[in-house]
Design a protein around this nucleic acid. Structure first.
Length: 494
RNA sequence: GCCGCCAUCGUCUAGUGGUUAGGACGCAGGAUUCUCAUUCCUGUAACACGGGUUCGACUCCCGUUAGCGGUACCA
């Protein structure tokens, strides 16, 4: 067998890129790259009914966004082209014929109505519903005659009777299946397309895949594939079935129904690709040094299947958010600025993009809110007052002001005092603003006001909210003119 | 129903026969502080159950139960 490790993802293009696909891509990518191998993406577009236009493009874009770029793919190309199964139909036909000639497969002319009826009857009788092998004894000659006449047919594989089929999974070890519980799987559908079971075996063989890494939900189908490899006389790749990500309530696979499953959703929310990858890695694997925050590079370097956890993890948005916040806080201001521009460009938020156009100003705003972001989209709500006057109706402003401090007269005195002190500042420097702060503290002390009551009305006057970064940091960034103007507005509204 | 996988705090996990069962998220409290947030400290909370094996089981074996997955001309 080939020396080079070759792994692949084989998603079917049925919608927006699923987070589970990214998770599979990460694992396959890490294993291959950690061993100097290749990571391949093959599109399993064999179900024409479920095919969604644009799905491949969406996945391609996200794989690049995440930095999990395949060495070979429908877009990248490669030496085993084509990487789209719909373009490989003759290949599957050829191998299906080979199976028939070896008596490992047969034509089946049963209608779907008959199949349903048979299964229903079996269910009624309390036996596992399976195909009853009605067509298994048709001779090849007769079958080919009927095919020639234009009858609808599928090709089914023959599953041997009374045999224990051994599947060896690199993580789970040996798993035994009773062949009598396995259906004579359809290999080629009546539309001439292969089923997954056929296509995956043929393509993994032809594309020299060394490790078949896939979700645990595929485990029950592996004896069929093991059999197919045997029928063809091909060497089986290593099999690894990794846990499936579950919904946050633990009920079922991560899906649209509960919360969100598309990678795009998390991008639109302002999660960073590295943070998502970090999260995805840590739910099934732990860093050798016990780190919670680690780079994909570390995952690539240390990851091995034997360290993978065995349970299906639940999706935990809180933890993802925490990790994302950690990544945001580590960013340089200019990096965060670039990411914000990229984010709001992607979400097409013209208003916020307009704000960010003033780069110098934004670079002063960002440090004040950086530690308050857990996702990029938090930005807008935290900084609006830096870019626009607080929009409040007069009564709203008044209520907020009164609530924030004590009585009206006191607030009036306070705000006027601050206004005059700010006006007196000749050079707009941090040290000078500290002096103003000291003056306010003195005033508060003289009047026996709580410091909270001295600062909160000012904050509300300037920002229109009761939460903001440290007041004098805000004042410094706002500048003298805007500060005075807003103080005036507040005084008038009283 | 049948087949398979699996089982440590609410969640993600460490642990491989003898531990005060460790860490992280979350939650609660505290410190810092002009508010919010950050950061730091403290606390909270777990070995599903029943049999074995053993001097000794969270750890090994068997069963039960729960959960998940599969049971298609979907992947």
């Amino acid at each position: 067998m080939n020396e080079t490790v070759r792994t692949r993802i084989a998603p079917s293009p049925t919608g927006l890129a699923h987070l589970g696909t990214i998770y599979q891509a990460l694992i396959n990518y890490a294993y291959a790259k950690g061993r100097g191998g290749n990571f391949i993406w093959r599109s399993e577009d064999t179900d024409q009914a479920r095919f969604v236009k644009g799905a491949e493009e969406n996945l391609n874009e996200h794989l690049h966004w995440f930095g999990l770029v395949p060495d070979e793919s429908p877009f990248e190309g490669g030496k085993f082209e084509p990487y789209r199964q719909s373009e490989r139909l003759e290949t599957y036909q050829k191998y299906a014929k080979e199976l028939i000639s070896k008596d490992h497969a047969y034509y089946c002319f049963c209608t779907s109505e008959r199949l349903t009826k048979v299964r229903e009857q079996m269910q009624k009788d309390g036996i596992p519903p399976m195909y009853d092998k009605y067509c298994i004894n048709l001779s090849i000659e007769e079958s080919e005659e009927r095919v020639k006449k234009g009858e609808n047919f599928v090709i089914r594989m023959k599953i041997p009777l009374d045999e224990t089929i051994k599947v060896y999974d690199e993580v789970l070890g040996e798993i035994l299946f009773d062949s009598n519980t396995i259906d004579d799987q359809v290999l080629i559908k009546s539309d001439g397309f292969p089923t997954y079971h056929m296509a995956v075996v043929v393509d993994d063989y032809l594309m020299e895949i060394t490790h078949m890494v896939r979700a645990r939900e595929w485990l029950p189908s592996s004896p069929k594939q093991v059999l197919l490899y045997r029928y063809f006389g091909w060497e089986l790749p290593k099999l690894i079935h990794v846990p499936v990500i579950l919904n946050s309530d633990g009920k079922g696979k991560l899906s649209k129904r509960h919360g969100h499953s598309s990678a795009d959703y998390y991008r639109l929310q302002g999660f960073l690709p590295k943070a998502i990858l970090n999260y995805l890695a840590q739910i099934i694997w732990n860093h050798p040094k016990g780190k919670e925050i680690f780079d994909v590079k570390d995952f690539v370097k240390y990851f091995d299947f034997k360290d993978i956890s065995s349970q299906g993890p639940r999706f935990d948005l809180d933890k993802l958010k925490w990790i994302n916040g950690q990544y945001i806080r580590k960013l340089k201001v200019t990096e965060l600025y670039e990411m914000l521009v990229e984010h709001y460009t992607y979400t097409k938020d013209e208003e916020t993009l307009k704000w960010l156009e003033d780069k110098d100003y934004s670079l002063k705003v960002i440090p004040l809110i950086q530690e308050r972001l857990s996702i990029l989209s938090d930005f807008k709500g935290l900084v609006s007052y830096f870019y626009m006057d607080p929009r409040h109706s007069e009564t709203e402003a008044k209520n907020l002001l009164i609530k924030s401090g004590q009585d009206k007269d006191q607030i009036m005195v306070l705000l006027s005092f601050v206004h005059d002190e700010i006006k007196k500042v000749e050079s707009w420097k941090t040290v000078n603003l500290h002096k103003v702060e000291t003056e306010i503290r003195n005033l508060a002390e003289k009047n026996t006001w709580k410091t909270l009551n001295a600062f909160m009305p000012i904050r509300v006057a300037l920002t229109g909210t009761r939460q903001s970064p440290p007041l004098f940091d805000v004042i410094e960034v706002l500048g003298q003119e805007k500060t005075l103007q807003r103080l005036n507005q507040a005084i008038q509204s009283l």
